[in-house]
Computed example of a mutant assay.
Amino acid sequence: MERNALAQDLPLPQGEVLWWRGKGYRAVRLPAPEGTYLLLLEDTARLAQARAYQGLLRLLEKLLRGEPPEALLQSLLEEAVALVPGAEAGSVLLREGPFFYLVAQVGFSEKLLGARTTVEEEMAWYGLGVNNWLLGRPRVLKGAEIRQLSHLSTLEARPLFFTHGRLGEIQATLEVPIALQGEVLAVMNLDNFQDPEAFSPLSLELAQGLALEAALLLKTLEERKALEAQARTDPLTGLGNRRALEEAFPNLLREAQSRGEPLTLVYWDLNGLKRLNDRLGHAAGDQAIKAVAQALREAARRQDLVFRVGGDEFVSLHPGLPFPDAQALIARVKARLPHKVAAGAVEAQGEDLAHLLQEADQRMYLDKAKEGP
């Protein structure tokens, strides 16, 4: 096989497809007596769509494996830089409340990870207005435009973006909001360091398609997180349930032991709930349960956790609280309530949760006997 003059710098395809300088070619080999003719048919758009679909399947596989959003966005960004014509580097910023945090990068320093900007700064950097922003329409900045708008980053983030984000080198940048149902969940930037005209209409089309994939992935993760939280939450009080307690306890115990601090568990019981339900109805009983939950929340420190583990039973975990101090905590909670509660405290010494609950439950019944009905 010989190369002709028109294909002097063109690499030979190893299979049926050749990607070269941002374009995709289908390769066809035609045997002939004098050798083999190699025909290359440019089909960038179709090949890019097929490649994007394959990338989406890989992302869905990672989603099913439970990978975190940062890892999924990193994989998607790598696909985007490899797929979108003109892209040589890129970044993704994920929205959390009033800020966007840079969580994925290709072609930059890892020191850029964690840099943040505000929602207002990102919208100003985007520059096409709120409607286009919410619709997820891509936009391109070139050369001097990039330098003019680079001052919009916060004083906190600006040194990071210039030092590690190569703002002075970028000749063209394509930004696309990752938007779904009127909400921007993240933004993706694709960058070129050589050519202000690097991004074609096909580049924008592909980037917008990848952004839609990212939005669907993030929405799926958000819904999964909400379902998981619901499965660990008591619907009446909003406290964690028994399952949440069983998941949280081993982690808190390990942390307390590593710091050489105590971990105290308190078992709480609302006295006379059945009598209250029989006399005033279940609505009154529910209000009493909510009152106990609120009192426990108000008495808890920031590091403490509170759970409802039965109809009228609660458990609280108190890292760093010595066992003798638990009695003062119990007295404060009782003083806040119009209903009687009994409580039993025990300090975790490495026992399993079931053993501790049994011991604390026994101490709670001793307290109940002292308190009376």
Rank of each mutant, 00 (worst) to 15 (best):
A82P: 10
T36S: 11
L239V: 03
V84E: 03
V306R: 01
F323V: 14
L155G: 11
G107W: 08
Y126Q: 02
V184D: 03
E228V: 07
L60G: 12
F99I: 13
E347G: 12
E67L: 14
P13N: 08
G168C: 08
E313P: 05
L253M: 13
G182T: 01
L152Y: 00
L227R: 09
V119G: 10
E67Q: 12
I146L: 03
E223I: 11
E120S: 13
A335C: 04
P319S: 05
E228G: 09
L265D: 02
G165T: 02
G143T: 11
L236R: 00
T118S: 14
E156C: 07
P177K: 02
M188H: 10
I289M: 00
E79H: 14
I330A: 11
L76C: 08
G209T: 03
A326C: 07
G66M: 11
V309T: 00
E169T: 13
G165F: 06
H164S: 08
K340P: 03
S150P: 02
H339C: 05
G15T: 06
S150T: 04
S258Q: 15
F249N: 01
D191F: 04
A32L: 14
A45W: 12
Q49K: 15
N132T: 07
E67R: 07
H282T: 01
E205G: 10
V292T: 02
P33E: 06
R275S: 05
R336F: 00
L77C: 06
Q294G: 00
F162R: 10
W20K: 03
L217H: 08
E156S: 07
L73E: 00
P322G: 07
I178R: 05
R279L: 14
A5I: 12
L128G: 08
A104M: 10
A115E: 07
K225H: 10
F161H: 12
Q287S: 13
S200N: 07
V176C: 03
L73V: 08
P250F: 02
H339R: 10
A179K: 09
A115G: 11
K23L: 13
N189F: 12
S203I: 06
V81T: 04
A345V: 00
L329W: 15
L202Y: 02
R147Q: 15
P31N: 12
R363A: 12
V176S: 04
H151M: 09
R26E: 15
R302A: 13
P373Y: 11
A229T: 09
E205F: 05
R302I: 06
K142Q: 13
A231K: 03
R254N: 14
L321F: 07
R242G: 03
L112Q: 06
V346L: 10
G272I: 01
E197Y: 11
P69I: 05
P98K: 08
K290E: 04
R243P: 08
F199Q: 05
Q54C: 13
T173W: 02
E96D: 10
